Simulated scan of single mutants.
Amino acid sequence: MTALLEVDNLAKHFPVRRGVLQRVRGQVKAVDGVSFTLAAGETLAVVGESGCGKSTLGRLVLRLIEPTAGSVRWKGQDIFALAPGPLRALRREMQIVFQDPYASLNPRLTVGEMVGEPLMLHGLARGRAAEARVVELLHLVGLAPEHARRYPHEFSGGQRQRIGIARALAAGPQLLVGDEPVSALDVSIRAQVVNLLQDIQQRLGLAYLFVSHDLGVVRHVADRVAVMYLGRIVELAPKPALYAAPRHPYTAALLAAIPVADPRLKRDRPILEGDVPSPMAPPPGCRFHTRCPYAIDRCRVESPALTADAAGHAVACHRWQELAPLPSAVAETVAIDPRLAALQGAFRRRPEVSAGA
């Protein structure tokens, strides 16, 4: 399968300035040597704890921020080498849905103005043609034509996120980056928006880079999953393989931490001790060794490479072959939140409900 997006050794280090003269005293290594590919119509989920670099990675892929090192190639073209004109044209093909549906919309613009703005900026439609396209986009995300005349404060959180999705789709992208697009929503609304994103992907053939900390939602939407820790990918695998047999101890701990809505169910969960190290001074060797119960001397001095097998299951761990299978206890017990799963089925049977979310 030909890759639309190729990320190679991507890094972003933010300078830390202190003192009256604001001299650089260190670097926050938010993203530090990340590589992956993404094919047309595929969903790659990026998961990990808060502060691991997920959102920074999404912004780097879209060149919303400039990298410290590495490259991002879209259809073979390095986006960081583009001049402003070609980059502006490229932005039609790569869009983002932000996490906060309250902060990401301009309160001074109507919905019609916000959704129609990309059409005007890229010269895609004007006048009546733009108005018709806005109505079409609103219908696509489950909103009514009359919503185009309203302002963001008149909508619920789920409706605002639908507006954000419509705005992202206006320019006709091929890649959509979702920066935790459902994490700020209630469970019932979350189910509707997840279903909406999947329906849009099937209809338009979009590729998704889905940033999330919710492994239940990720299991429902992803084709492959990349697990990040302190700015690096520690495991990258097809979704069934990662959930059934995680190879990295950090992945196993994340999966075992997913709550199960059954108080009678007992599971042996690996407990991670200690705090996440500072990204300003990540530990030498394997960055996870300070919290890993299986760490040995080699882990403390030698950084493991992210190595894939023939099936495409990649892991950055010196001991994964000795430790497999890790005690994640997810194969039989972990799924998307049962309430979310039930609601998804209900909303698929009752499409009219989606317009009110």
Rank of each mutant, 00 (worst) to 15 (best):
L176G: 05
G70R: 05
R348Y: 07
L255K: 13
L272K: 12
M228P: 11
K266F: 13
G142I: 02
V330F: 09
L10K: 06
T68H: 00
V97P: 02
Y229K: 10
P246V: 05
L62F: 08
E146W: 09
R23G: 14
A132R: 14
D223G: 14
G19H: 10
E66K: 12
E136I: 01
E332T: 13
G164F: 01
L215G: 10
Q77G: 00
V177Q: 02
N9Q: 15
R128G: 11
V141S: 05
L306K: 10
P249K: 03
R149Q: 15
A331F: 12
Q22D: 12
G157H: 12
A191T: 09
I65M: 04
S71F: 01
A261P: 09
Y243A: 06
A245P: 01
S354Q: 15
L138G: 07
L254P: 09
S156V: 04
A252E: 04
G26S: 10
L176S: 03
L272F: 13
S50T: 13
E146L: 02
R339G: 13
A148R: 13
V111T: 13
R17Y: 07
R219G: 15
R167H: 05
Q174L: 01
Q202C: 00
V193N: 11
M1A: 14
L185D: 13
L44S: 01
P249G: 03
R300F: 01
L343F: 12
P84V: 11
V134L: 02
A310R: 14
R224D: 11
L185S: 11
A237K: 05
L57E: 03
H213P: 12
V46S: 07
Q27R: 15
S50A: 10
N106E: 03
V111N: 04
P304R: 04
Q159F: 04
I79Y: 08
G26T: 04
L5Y: 04
F210S: 12
L272E: 12
G85K: 14
D309S: 09
V301C: 06
F14K: 02
A170C: 03
T290S: 15
H289D: 01
P304D: 11
Q159K: 00
K12T: 08
G33I: 09
G48D: 02
V234P: 11
H248E: 11
A310Y: 07
A305Y: 07
L242Y: 09
A346V: 14
R300P: 02
H213V: 08
R300V: 05
L121F: 07
N9L: 03
R167S: 08
A184K: 02
M114Q: 15
I79C: 06
V111D: 04
A245R: 15
V276F: 13
N106Y: 05
P327R: 05
S212R: 01
R264Q: 14
V31Q: 07
P284T: 03
G127P: 07
I296H: 13
A125R: 07
S278G: 10
P325N: 04
L87Y: 12
G172C: 12
S55A: 05
S104G: 09
